[in-house]
Design a binder for these strands. Structure first.
Length: 890
RNA sequence: GGGGGUGUGGCGGAAUGGCAGACGCAGGGGAUUUAAAAUCCCCCGAUCAUUGAUCAUGCGGGUUCGACUCCCGCCACCCCCACCA
């Protein structure tokens, strides 16, 4: 009867229907605490990838575990459905972004249901629906009123291929995060959210998050905020008296300033040099610096370059007159756009001074007393201050900084200043498929925000995507032409749309009240569920989504819409899912079908079975490139005949090493896939996908199925009570069961260590397999139920079926997580290792609660121990009751 | 250059400062089978050896009766940021 394999196709569908029918995730059970579990919602690309599978499976285990623990759980799902891919598809194929998106959502929703993830689909929404994005406009207007929205001209990142600006956070290594083409800088008049206003609060908020968010995320955000404490110092242009303040973190080196560097874009450059003898030379140099490679990548790799302006500045601390240079390393966007240069104690200034032959003055004395003549670079360490008027002789330059800053402030030469690297959030995008920015341009009234009552500004649908270039909204007269809300004259609408990160900055709140059509959300619904108890997603959002969402929450708090400032109490970031990928020197990445295994001498191709074995070993990492060569084998590209290398890398379409979740679920069922992604590595580490591994999880499920089916005849009826005073196998089995409950619970609670939780369940299973035939029927029921319940968050369909087969009429998720009984888990005796100088020499069986003195006596009376220490001096006896004994002898 | 993280068998990984390698994958052997798959049982860090011993958690020190674990100094790899004044 138990010979059949577990029929996942039928059973998984059956239980999914059942959960939906009974509304498992919607069941609000009064008197229970609320728990809001949220997974980062996906962009509806049309297919789930393995990263989603890992992310949402972790989330689903949390949801189901919390249900079993007696919580009311909110587990919503929605769609981050604005964005470029839909628009690009429209340009390519002519299908409207709306239809493209809706079709994709349909497909992905099906895949999600099939995976068995529990979501309350009644709360589903897509951000590209006007019911959602109208609130983006509403918030924009509220924040505009509050002064948190600005339109300004600034150097922005421009992606020519996407034909839009990008936020700083969306530029990676000088390339567009989305399409990979190189990003250039240009000045544009754009909309911004004043993120930088919140720099200090965003940083301070980390105190609350520490311990609940991964350290790496907090570190990345702190770095991105880039707080640095220093001083502002009031330099002045000698020739014109114009102020030219600088920011410095090293006021202790002020007396060592030998020149001033100013950014090429600095307005003072043109203002000063216009009409001067240096005008032409400076202007050409500035042109060259600004134009020669505006790509962000080139900017970073450029060599130091500068030009003298012909002007000088006066150092307020000592009246020194120093030359003013334009330097390509000075950034207009940081500090004041001007840098005081101290070549003796700053490596960058050192290089510049050497190149242009500028003076170098030592003001910090290194311990060895050496000077710049003998240095090969700037001295950046600590030492005594020299050549610095009244501060000369201070023994430690860094300790002297506060006194110097105070002196600057007292004498009107400057003062303390905190600077942040965080810049404002560039909001506008020159694209169609996003939230229209609710603003009108009027020749008479200027920039006029759309009144709240006129919302929403609806994205028009009468667009031809296959014609023309640039933002398609410009080609929709019915959209562009409007009346000025203020004076009623003809006006033009803003055609820029919002960055999609606006959508994801507050979606976590909308899930609490998704159908509200008079407000983005009602306060009482927020109070019920928010902040999010557990948020789960990828670490790649550390400085983007997670920073914006925190900012938005703080801003909404300041608008009086929320009474908390942090949206996500706990954050968990899952690891990447990786798989081996093959790369040909000529054809780049290859699918494994295009890789041929050959014998090195003679280039003879291996038989299919032998080749498959080789691929398998490569996938398992049991065959390294060296190992392959040692066996006289080589990999060759089937297309070009060139050598092929392999590496373990993130599963991605571009590397051609994707694993299709649908295909896996066809073959093994959702539960097997769920079990596999959780069973090998801790979920925050890199996961390695192997075919053998999935198959192993499939075998595990079948072994378990047979075990449960074979036990049905022997198991006591539902509700049977385990008799007291168990002995032998029964006592052992029950002890193991309760020990397991304790350790499984600990593994889940202590940071989602599902791999160890699964290992603990396997141990219990192995033990049960060896003792089942002798077990008391009631004990057998207890252990089987513990196994089924503890596995149910991970492999829910399977667990439900077993639960039903065990005679239960209600869902396993209506039961409670098993109670750990310390009495049942208690050991009758423990084995105590006896160490001599740290090495185990003997073992004793003793009662678990034997007192230290008793244990020591037993050990010292043991004849074997006596023999081992005979003739030696007993220096120390260490007794850890219930654990071990160590004898230190000489 | 700065920050964060990780180093343990062929592989993924276990170990409140207390028996290193749980659990699983791969591998080897056996049973079953006409055969294969599946299943079940056994072995599986290294070296030496007869029961047993010695060495082993990236490297070097330290603290401790006792260190994968704590401290100091290196090395390697991964991720993030980077002309940030």
């Amino acid at each position: 009867m138990a010979d059949e394999e577990y029929n996942f196709t039928l059973l998984e569908q059956k239980w999914q229907r059942q959960w939906e029918k009974t509304g498992l995730v919607r069941a609000i059970r009064p008197g229970r605490p609320n728990f809001y579990s949220l997974n980062m919602y996906p962009y509806p690309s049309g297919v789930l990838h393995m990263g989603h599978v890992l992310n949402y499976t972790i989330g689903d285990v949390v949801v189901r575990y919390k249900i079993l623990r007696g919580y009311n759980v909110l587990s919503p799902m929605g769609w981050d459905s604005f964005g470029l891919p839909a628009e690009n598809a429209a340009i390519r194929t002519g299908v409207s972004p709306h239809d493209f998106t809706e079709n994709n959502i349909e497909r992905m929703r099906g895949q999600m249901r099939r995976a068995g993830w529990l979501y309350d689909w009644n709360r589903e929404f897509a951000t590209s629906h006007v019911d959602y994005y109208r609130w983006n406009q509403w918030f924009f207007l509220k924040l505009f009123e509050k002064g948190l929205v600005v339109k300004k001209t600034a150097p922005v990142n421009w992606c020519d291929s996407c034909q839009t600006v990008l936020a700083n956070e969306q530029v990676k290594d000088g390339e567009c995060e989305r399409c990979g083409s190189s990003v250039t800088q240009k000045d544009m008049n754009q909309w911004f959210y004043r993120l930088s206003e919140y720099a200090e609060r965003l940083l301070a908020g980390h105190d609350k998050l520490r311990g609940h968010w991964p350290d790496a995320v907090l570190a990345m955000q702190a770095e991105w905020i880039g707080k640095s404490v220093g001083a502002e110092v009031e330099f002045r242009v000698r020739e014109t008296g114009e102020p030219l303040p600088v920011f410095t973190t090293r006021p202790d080196t002020l007396w060592g300033v030998t020149f001033m560097s100013i950014a090429p874009e600095h307005p003072l450059v043109e203002k000063l040099t216009r009409g001067s003898p240096y005008e032409r030379e400076v202007a050409t140099a500035v042109q060259r610096m600004r134009n020669l490679g505006t790509s962000v990548k080139e900017l970073a790799e450029r060599e130091k370059e500068g030009v003298f302006t012909g002007f000088h500045v006066i150092n307020p601390v000592n009246g020194a007159e120093i030359p003013l240079w334009v330097a390509n390393f000075a950034l207009m966007s940081y500090g004041t756009g001007a840098v005081m240069s101290v070549p003796a104690h700053d490596q960058r200034d050192w290089e510049f001074a050497k190149k242009y032959n500028l003076p170098i003055i030592k003001v910090i004395d290194p311990p060895d007393g050496s000077g710049p003549e003998s240095w090969t670079g700037a001295y950046v360490g600590s030492g005594a201050i020299v050549n610095s008027d009244q501060f000369s002789g201070q023994p430690d330059n860094f300790q002297a900084i506060p006194a110097i800053v105070d002196w600057l402030a007292d004498n009107g030469k400057g003062g303390k200043r905190v600077n942040y690297r965080l810049r404002d959030w560039l909001l506008s995008r020159q694209r169609y498929w996003g939230t229209p920015i609710p603003v009108v341009y009027c020749d008479t009234c200027g920039i006029v925000p759309v009144p709240l009552k006129d919302l929403p500004v609806v994205l028009p649908t009468d667009i031809d995507f296959t014609q023309g270039q640039g933002n398609p909204l410009l080609r929709s007269p019915s959209f562009v032409n409007c009346k000025c809300p203020s004076c009623g004259k003809p006006a033009k609408r803003e055609t820029d749309t919002m960055d999609t990160f606006v959508d994801s900055s507050w979606y976590q709140f909308r899930f609490a009240d998704p159908h509200n059509d008079s407000l983005p959300f009602a306060g009482e619904k927020i109070a019920e569920w928010l902040p999010v108890s557990q948020y789960i997603g990828g670490i790649e959002h550390a400085t983007m989504h997670l920073m914006y969402a925190r900012f938005f929450t703080m801003a909404l708090h300041d608008l009086g819409l929320l009474d908390f400032e942090e949206p996500f109490e706990r954050l968990f970031c899952q690891g990447m899912v990786c798989k081996v990928a093959y790369r040909c020197e000529v054809c780049k990445w290859l699918p494994s079908e295009d890789v041929m295994v050959v014998q090195q001498d003679g280039k003879r191709e291996l038989e299919p079975e032998a080749a498959e074995a080789v691929f398998k070993r490569i996938e398992n990492q049991s065959l390294t490139p060296d190992g392959l060569a040692a066996e006289g084998l080589a990999l060759i590209c089937r297309r070009s005949g060139d050598p092929v290398r392999f590496e373990m890398t993130k599963i991605s379409k571009s590397k051609l090493n994707i694993v299709d979740p649908d295909a896996m679920m066809d073959r093994y069922g959702a539960d097997t896939v769920r079990l596999y992604v959780l069973s090998d590595s801790p979920p925050d580490r890199m996961q390695i996908w192997t075919e053998d591994g999935v198959n192993g999880s499939w075998r595990t499920i079948n072994r378990l199925w047979r075990l449960v089916m074979d036990s049905l005849a022997k198991v006591a009826p539902v509700g049977s009570v385990v008799p007291p005073d168990l002995t032998g196998v029964d006592r052992e089995l029950r002890r193991k069961t309760h020990q397991s409950i304790g350790r499984i619970t600990e593994a889940i609670e202590g940071g989602y260590q599902f791999n160890t939780a699964i290992a603990r369940i396997n141990e219990l299973l192995n033990f049960l397999r060896s003792s089942r035939d002798k077990a008391n029927p009631a004990v057998l029921r207890e252990v089987l139920e513990v196994i089924v319940i503890t596995l149910s968050p991970i492999i829910p369909h399977f667990a439900e079926e077993c639960w039903a087969k065990l005679g239960h009429l209600e869902s396993v998720f209506l039961h409670t997580w098993p109670e750990f009984d310390p009495e049942a888990a208690r050991l009758d005796s423990v084995e105590i290792p006896v160490q001599i100088n740290g090495k185990v020499r003997e073992r004793l069986q003793v009662p678990p609660d034997l007192a230290a003195a008793e244990l020591e006596r037993l050990v010292l009376e043991n004849t074997k121990v006596q023999g081992l220490i005979a003739g030696k001096t007993l220096v120390k006896v260490v007794v850890v009751p219930g654990r071990m004994v160590n004898l230190a002898v000489r």
